[in-house]
Simulated scan of single mutants.
Amino acid sequence: MDSLGWFGFSASALGMLIGGAVAWLFCGWHKGTPIIFSLSSGMIFGLAVVEILPESMAAGGWLLTVIGLAAGYGLYHHLESMWHRVVVVTNRKNHDAWIHSGVYLLFSIAIHNFPTGIALGVNARSPLAEQLGLAVIFHNIPEGLAVFTPLLMAGMGMMGVVLGAIAVSIPVGIGALLGSRYGADISWLSAVMTTMAVGIMLTVAAKEMLGTALKETKMIDCLLLSTLGFLSVWCFLIFL
């Protein structure tokens, strides 16, 4: 991995680690699963609506966006059926839900990070390169917060956060290398992979997180908290 790959990888990992550190600071302050899951689901919807989907539609158009979303939805259900057949994590319902959500989100963020790296590589020689690197860092902070909150709630330590941040950032480095060499030829693949990741993320947010919260608290409370999560990410992405 040359310097461009390391640059993309480091920017992504730093943002994810900052988000994970924030999640770790506040993971002990909660009143149960509904609050955490409602806030996190709103954050994920915010990431998808404010940042990821507009970029994907601009790159690939409506058709590829719909195809990617459908593929992500189908992939989630395939992974879910495999997960429930071969994995038994704990005997505690809430911890199982937290781990399921965190693992699915890690997987979807890793998919999304590949086209992010491609975009970084395509613009490697432009004056915007450094700004794009900063954008990767700041945009990965809320992603790290949303991903690592459920995993930390399930008992994962900071070493797990570090390993998770490294794992999901490797695709950024690989994408940056490919983008710098073949970016013009794989723009369609970038758009499909981005929306496929969004399909997984939105399904996780709606089913694994918001669905679990709705079973344990009032709908109005879930909606208010998820709206708060959405607005917090919207403000972060718009103003930073």
Rank of each mutant, 00 (worst) to 15 (best):
M153Y: 03
G102M: 12
L231E: 09
G72I: 06
V162R: 10
S40K: 02
I118T: 00
E208Y: 10
I238W: 08
S108Q: 09
G15E: 11
S12Q: 06
W188L: 14
L152Y: 02
G179V: 14
L214E: 12
S169H: 11
S38L: 03
S169Q: 00
G160M: 07
F239Y: 12
L177E: 01
P142G: 03
A21C: 10
G28R: 14
I36F: 11
A71Y: 08
F9Y: 10
L178G: 01
E216C: 01
T227K: 08
L47R: 05
L145F: 14
Y182C: 00
I141N: 09
S41G: 08
P54V: 06
H95R: 12
V204Q: 08
V88C: 07
L75R: 10
P127Q: 06
E55N: 15
A154G: 01
H100E: 02
L120K: 04
C27S: 05
L64K: 09
H112R: 01
H30M: 00
V162G: 05
L237P: 05
S10R: 08
L177W: 09
G229K: 10
V136H: 11
N140P: 13
S56A: 15
G15W: 05
G32P: 07
I238R: 01
I166V: 14
S81C: 12
G102P: 07
R92E: 03
L134C: 12
P115L: 00
V89P: 07
L53P: 09
K218G: 09
K31Y: 13
G28N: 15
A205M: 04
G199R: 11
V192H: 08
G173E: 00
G28T: 04
T217E: 00
V87G: 08
G183C: 00
Y76F: 15
V136W: 07
G183Y: 09
L163Q: 02
L4E: 11
T149G: 04
S3N: 12
G61T: 07
G42S: 04
T194E: 12
I118F: 11
H84S: 10
D2K: 13
A48K: 02
R181W: 06
V49N: 07
H30A: 12
G121V: 01
V50F: 15
V161T: 10
V233P: 07
